[in-house]
Design a protein around this nucleic acid. Structure first.
Lengths: 233, 233
DNA sequence: TAAATTTTCATTAATTTTTCCTGAACTGTA
DNA sequence: TACAGTTCAGGAAAAATTAATGAAAATTTA
């Protein structure tokens, strides 16, 4: 990940903390900005348009949550990642529960390694630019996308309704396109290790999925299992 | 298998589960350690250097996948076996996919017997150290590569589908390019010592492989066995 | 209760695995 | 060199395994 393309805003009333965080994030390659209070945070944020904001909850005058609410109102800041920094012992229910609009929160004291990792993960998640690594096992699928909330399978924009078992099965295959999943593995992951169903059951589900997706997606590897692959033969 | 030589780390935020797993694994003879959150897991792992880590995906603060990523970064932990414990219905693409770096995952509820078996198998698998012959070609260096996950044989970038027996046979030969495998050895490794098949069976499989790979790969050493070699005559 | 979903079952189909037979290549020997 | 005795390759096909299919029963859901 090229970190130099990311702007991070740190907001804390303690200069010491700002300095430590700043030092470490800077060393990682991020562009770092700081603010020591809510008001300042809003100004810097508006000007710099950071990708991620680390916000201390406990601050005088305008606290983290209020600042967060204000930040969210700024143009282009609706999707900025806002992470709360909170001291241990503060009321989690208040922090985790409220809808001030934070994306995540960290409990102080935070190990720097953890914080850096979290920042990285959050940025990457928001990045959502699925790159293709040539040659390597590409686990992001091409034309098939799952909508787990609605139990929909979207293939080339077309929405297909899938019943639960079929959906779960497809989801499993899709979780690693190309990988051959053995029957055992499929039963284990889709049905669970409690339930025991006949071998033909799986065949039938595979057939149903094939009927909906059309041919060329699910391939049988006789004696081994099934795999999903879009391009191949 | 002497289980007392293995250290297993259990990570789950639910104490009950930890207790049950701990009890059972302990009874099997493993050395068991526990942690109730990702942070603790990292600390214990760093100190105890476990051989296998059972990691619940759903945990507060730092979830299993994130923890996994962190664990992988610890020194000497690159090859530790990490197994995810996941509830059925969770997004497979999140669990199996992504580069969290898990070796396997189990779906809850897991039968204890299943879990113990899986642990045993995984530990044993990791035990086998692939032997290298000094002068021989490395299996990855040649133009033939096996992709076990996809069950494909890749020869000069070209993907070839191999049926099971042929795949296993080729895998054996490829495990030590240049070495001559005796018929006896091949039958033992590929068919297992219980199954008894005629001598001609092997010839036929070799022929099939030759048909697919083309000549120049598998060489017959009359009266001794077969070997795979890419360069020689 | 009807509709949809999931599972089973009997058959059929396809592929894989194995056997068998013929002949070529090689080995050692008279 | 010619002769038996092995050992393996190649063609063809039987045997066995495994999966696809059609239809229907069982189960769950709406």
């Amino acid at each position: 990940m090229d970190k130099s393309g990311y702007r991070i805003l740190l907001v804390d009333d303690e200069e010491d903390i700002l300095e430590i965080l700043s030092f470490n994030l800077d060393r990682e390659g991020y562009q770092v900005f700081t603010a020591t209070n809510g008001q300042e945070a809003l100004e810097v944020a508006a000007r710099q348009q950071p990708h991620l904001i680390l916000l201390d909850v406990m601050m005088p005058e305008m606290d983290g949550m209020e600042t967060c609410g204000e930040l969210r109102k700024l143009p282009g800041m609706e999707k900025t990642i806002i992470v709360f920094l909170t001291a241990r012992g503060e009321d989690y229910s208040q922090i985790a529960g409220f809808d001030a609009g934070a994306d995540d929160y960290l409990v102080k004291p935070v190990k720097m390694k953890v914080l850096l990792k979290r920042v990285e993960v959050l940025l990457r998640r928001r990045e959502q630019v699925p790159k293709k690594s040539p040659g390597a096992a590409d686990r992001s699928s091409g034309s098939i996308v799952l909508d787990r909330d609605r139990y929909l399978v979207i293939r080339k924009g077309e929405k297909l309704a899938f019943p639960r078992k079929e959906f779960e099965l497809l989801a499993l295959l899709l979780s690693w396109p190309g990988k051959v999943f053995s029957r055992e593995e499929i039963f284990d992951k889709v049905w669970g290790n409690e339930v025991i169903v006949g071998d033909r059951t799986l065949d039938v589900h595979i057939r149903k999925i094939r009927e909906k997706l059309g041919p060329g997606y699910i391939h049988t590897v006789k004696g081994v299992g099934y795999k999903l692959e879009e391009k191949e033969d």
